Simulated assay, not measured.
Amino acid sequence: MTQHRLTVGYVPGVTPAKWARTWAERHPTVSLQLRTVPAAEAADALRNGIVDAALLRPPADSSGLALIALYEETTVAMVPTDHLLTAADSVTAADLDGEPILLPLDDVVAWADTPGAPVEHRPETTWDAVELVAAGMGALIVPQSLARLYHRRDLTYRPITDAPVCPVALAFPEGPQSALVEEFVGIVRGRKPGSSRGRAEPAPKRTAREKTLAKQAARAAAGKAARKPRRAT
């Protein structure tokens, strides 16, 4: 491969560690840089060339982007641990009737008729909304991975059984792609090393030192991807 670096963005809650490990094992001499991007800025980061590809929740405006659906997340309601909604293992939209609902400006749940009573003040970010949930200002509807990412001991969450799911996709600019992007697409899709698709060239046989470097790179990439943002206590 003629390039020596691939930059992949990912939004909060998405964990690219397993793909980073596979990349490091197959291409120890080609750097894979993982960059966290805010959900509201992920599409523009691709369009502006800040990242070569991104793992994101599909935006309402996907113009200029190619998307490959990966999986769907359960939608949950985050509430204080002593909230009435915690009495059951799951809730429905009807259970949220009359409940104050926080809608952050970077909201990623595409629910046209969000249940409950939307709070007039819209926090800047999902993390700001989590702080308000802890202060008793209302409930927050998010993908399950974000509820886990922003976990606090005084908060919990319950699946909303009739809520729309939250899809996650691999995105990259439309049009011809570099060999590195094609290779990453193949890895995310689960193609084997010998597949004729998603690979620009066969992988050369590695020396013992290269194998050691690959393992070290995989551990470093996985640790970086799994690191959570610092939270106030």
Rank of each mutant, 00 (worst) to 15 (best):
M1K: 13
H4G: 13
L6C: 11
G9T: 05
Y10V: 03
G13Q: 08
V14T: 10
V14G: 02
T15V: 11
A20P: 02
R21W: 03
W23T: 02
A24Y: 01
A24C: 12
E25P: 00
H27F: 15
H27G: 00
L32G: 03
L34Q: 05
R35P: 02
R35M: 12
V37C: 03
P38R: 08
P38W: 06
P38N: 07
E41A: 11
A43N: 03
N48V: 05
G49Q: 12
D52S: 09
A53W: 05
P58N: 07
A60S: 14
A66C: 03
I68G: 02
I68L: 13
V79W: 01
P80L: 07
H83Y: 01
L84Y: 02
T92A: 10
D95N: 15
L96Y: 07
D97N: 14
G98F: 09
G98D: 10
E99Y: 11
P104Y: 00
P104M: 04
D107T: 00
A110G: 05
A112N: 09
P118L: 11
V119N: 04
H121F: 15
R122I: 02
T125L: 01
T126C: 00
A129W: 00
A135D: 15
G136T: 06
M137S: 14
L140I: 02
S145G: 03
L146H: 03
R148L: 13
L149T: 14
R153M: 05
R153L: 06
D154R: 06
T156Q: 01
I160S: 02
A163W: 01
A163G: 03
P164W: 04
P167S: 06
P167G: 04
A169E: 03
P173Q: 11
E174H: 02
P176G: 09
A179T: 14
A179S: 14
L180D: 10
L180I: 09
E182W: 05
E182S: 13
E182D: 13
E183D: 15
V185E: 12
G186Q: 08
I187G: 00
R189H: 08
G190A: 11
R191I: 08
S195G: 10
S196G: 12
S196Y: 11
G198Y: 11
A203E: 10
T207C: 05
R209S: 07
E210S: 10
K211S: 08
L213M: 11
A214M: 07
Q216D: 12
A220R: 15
A226T: 15
R227D: 13
P229N: 11
R230H: 10
R231M: 14
